[in-house]
Design a protein around this nucleic acid. Structure first.
Lengths: 225, 225
DNA sequence: ATCTGTATACTCGTATACAAGAATACGAAT
DNA sequence: ATTCGTATTCTTGTATACGAGTATACAGAT
């Protein structure tokens, strides 16, 4: 048997390659805004900065392009993807569509483990003070509610959209008022899920997205001049 | 002004790079089944075959990985993504979710140009005899119905899922019976769209997906032994 | 005979080097 | 002064070279 026929097996335990490291650092830098939207990403420059050659940097840029965080223009270079009102509306409309469906499917499975985990993440979110962790925990909470939906492809897509909206999420979450409201909505969602009240849960989730989207659009227009 | 601040402008007119060419050839080979699911994709081998170095091949593999057509395992190589019943179910459930939403949104815009284009593609499909073009025209018809949905991100996602299901679509479309049924459903969809009957259009589209999915699952189980 | 350990071969990841294309800057002509 | 053309510089795309990790094969031990 050919040695390569086994490649597809096993979990995707990515050995930590240089490109992965660069990807992670760049992703974080983009999420935090250290690399602002529109900023040019020169291969040479980044390579020197990270102490690697341009090859891993190229790979990293391709990964981030797939995630929608950077835009690559062949022979011209890469830039951090733009942030604008249109993108926000589209992104949140899409997330609502995907996540409402995933929530519905998951609730039919009734897995208490997932809800327990969601509850634990929710508490961590209350205690967490580090801005950087909020986005991550927020994602973890949402995914915990969906993970029993039984559609891996759907879950992957949801995670991808989360990565794309991470930049936005951090903005709204740095607002204390919004943070409290968000947590209220999270608690309401979790409660409805535990009760098995699908309609209520979906309602809370929908409102959650609409709220976040509205807060972001407000923020964008307010500082757009 | 820095020269790079202009990178993001203009349409994404990708200059035909070697990597793009390799990507296109590989994508087609995977779609037609020339490269069967599970087949190993050696960088050296492909590079020699296409008369380029391994670098463009690497890039191509990354693109195809993002499209879900190949699975890359670092330090172990890449293989053509597997085709199985689970994947089919997930993929079609996802497409149904995305495309029904896009259709709904598009129909609210009422753009007769799109429908005219869809009708023209439909006629081409009737006349087309080349198997390779069916998948492409099929995609064009569907996208024509959705393109006014006003959410670019949603459209991109739909196109991505189409690319992933191209392999499957070609299988069901090579069955004459199914082809006729599919065209009937297409015509029914278009008719409902022209009438502005959203409920009926969505019904036809949903049935279209369920039919295709069922036909595929039948096919898979029948020849899986 | 099966299993384990070591050696070998193969493939990928990364680095360096070269070539080609794009944008800017400069100069000449109108 | 403005506009067009050319040259230079910068950046990316591609090729080649090297190093590291993984899997297979073979040999020895249990």
């Amino acid at each position: 048997m050919d040695r390569l026929s086994k490649i597809g097996e096993g979990r995707s335990v990515r050995p930590q390659t240089a490109a992965d490291g660069v990807t992670a650092i760049l992703r974080e830098a983009i999420a935090t805004g250290t690399l602002a939207p529109g900023a040019a990403l020169r291969q040479d420059e980044l390579a020197k900065e990270f102490g690697v050659s341009r090859m891993p940097v190229r790979d990293a840029l391709r990964y981030l392009e797939a995630e929608g965080l950077v835009a690559i223009h062949p022979t011209r270079g890469a830039v951090v993807a733009a942030m604008n009102a249109t993108d926000i509306s589209e992104l949140y409309a899409l997330r609502e569509l995907l996540e409402v469906e995933a929530l519905r499917l998951s609730m039919q499975k009734q897995n208490p483990d997932s809800l327990r985990h969601a509850a634990s993440v929710l508490e961590q979110l209350d205690r967490e003070t580090d801005v950087g962790r909020w986005g991550q925990l927020n994602r973890e909470f949402h995914v915990a509610l969906y993970r029993d939906c039984g559609n891996r492809r759907l879950l992957d897509l949801i995670e991808a959209q989360h990565a794309a909206s991470d930049r936005y999420v951090r903005i709204v979450l740095s607002n204390l008022d919004y943070r409290e409201r968000s947590q209220d909505e999270h608690r309401a969602m979790l409660f409805s899920c535990m009760q098995g009240d699908e309609k209520a849960a979906v309602g809370h989730l929908t409102r959650h997205f609409r709220d976040a989207c509205a807060a972001l659009l407000d923020y964008m227009t307010s500082r757009a001049r």
